[in-house]
Amino acid sequence: MFLAYASYMGFMVYQMDVKSAFLYGQIEEEVYVCQPLGFEDPDHPDKVLIRGKIDQTLFIKRQKGHILLVQIYVDDIIFGSTKKELCDEFEKLMKDKFQMSSMGELTFFLGLQVQQKKKGIFISQDKYVHEILRKYNYTDVKSASTLTDLEKPLVQDGDAADVDEHLYRSMIGSLMYLTASRPDIMFAVCACARFQVSPKTSHLLAVKRIFRYLKGKPSLGLWYSKDSPLELVAYTDSDYAGATQDRKSTTGGCQFLGNRLISWQCKKQTVVATSTTEAEYVAAASCCGQVLWIQNQLLDYGYNFMNTVIYIDNNSTICIIENPVQHSKTKHIEIRHHFIRDCNAKKLIQIAKIDTEQNVADLLTKGFDAGRF
């Protein structure tokens, strides 16, 4: 979200790192992130950064129509501003007060490669892809055009031979880390992750296919265009009873700022849905929760995106959400999923119909053939 905003505003993002000596140092003084009660300085209200209400690692400073954003993860700091002087002031202040090393323009952060260009920002993990291909000896294998074998769905496969569970879990863990920038592999990785307790040869073959796909597509990533408008939209979808071992459905959802993908979900539902509509409704409620979180997060950036459009490809689900009368046919749906109706009534969200072919969240709920993929 930070990088999506930076690409829209067109400012450069910089990085600083705390020197290790500071991590082991003892701090005798009390440390404040805002002016303590009784010590406010009315003449200098902008002396300190304001902490984000939702994201506690985000700090904001506004000054004469400009904004400085600082995102912190342990000892890594990235920051950017609509006014270059604010960045320079912040960097100088941090270096004066603490042992900091300036790393210039942001190029690598928490395993993500970041390329800042005039037309936008590109986020990828291709160096990491080459690392794991080398680690598991897949640098010379034949590549695959898709991630899943549609003719052989994953099942418990109790009669098949066991495989090394430590190797299997290690491979799954490596791929899970890669889903931070690769939503295209999300469904396949999550499907394979369900068999980590006692993996069989068929499950290992499925994981190997993901590595073969990565061999052919190592450099894909997320492109955040500068020209795209800043508007929040979301897509939600669900399969029906796709998990063969317990017949639960899979929720898929993704959220965009303009055409910038900032969040995506692929998760097996906790309930066994008794209809396609129920599975879609549960997925829509999950997507709604994520949208509300993003809306509140964006308030810190100074944007109000209430009445966000959520696209759904199931008419029955839309009818249940928009009709305030409790349908007799929805008694079996858990009450906690009905909060989406309340959000719709309060105009925090709005529901829109979309054709399945255009619903990008479909990618997060099932395997595709080469043409559709």
Rank of each mutant, 00 (worst) to 15 (best):
K267N: 00
I185S: 06
M16V: 10
L68Q: 01
D164A: 08
F22H: 04
Q265S: 14
M16W: 10
H203T: 01
F22G: 05
E105W: 01
T107N: 14
N314K: 10
G38L: 03
K118H: 14
A361G: 06
I123P: 06
R62Y: 08
D227R: 07
L299N: 06
L37W: 08
F339V: 12
I262Y: 05
A234D: 02
I27F: 02
S225E: 13
G158L: 12
H327Y: 10
Q35V: 07
A161I: 09
Q269I: 06
Q99W: 07
L299I: 12
Q245E: 10
L49W: 04
I310F: 11
Q358K: 15
R260M: 09
C87N: 11
S219N: 12
S328I: 11
Q99P: 02
W223E: 10
I312A: 02
Y5A: 11
A283H: 04
E28V: 01
K346R: 14
T330L: 09
K267L: 04
S101V: 15
W293A: 10
D157Y: 13
Q63P: 00
L348T: 08
L230H: 03
E105N: 06
C34F: 08
Q116R: 13
S202C: 12
T274D: 03
D164V: 10
R372C: 10
P199E: 11
L150V: 11
V360E: 10
A193N: 00
K92L: 09
F90E: 12
E280L: 00
G158M: 10
K331P: 09
A284F: 03
F59L: 02
A160P: 00
A370D: 07
E334R: 13
R336A: 04
D126H: 15
V207I: 01
Q295L: 04
D162W: 05
S124Q: 01
G52L: 03
C266P: 06
K95C: 13
G216M: 10
S7F: 03
N296A: 04
I27G: 08
D246R: 04
C288G: 01
I321S: 01
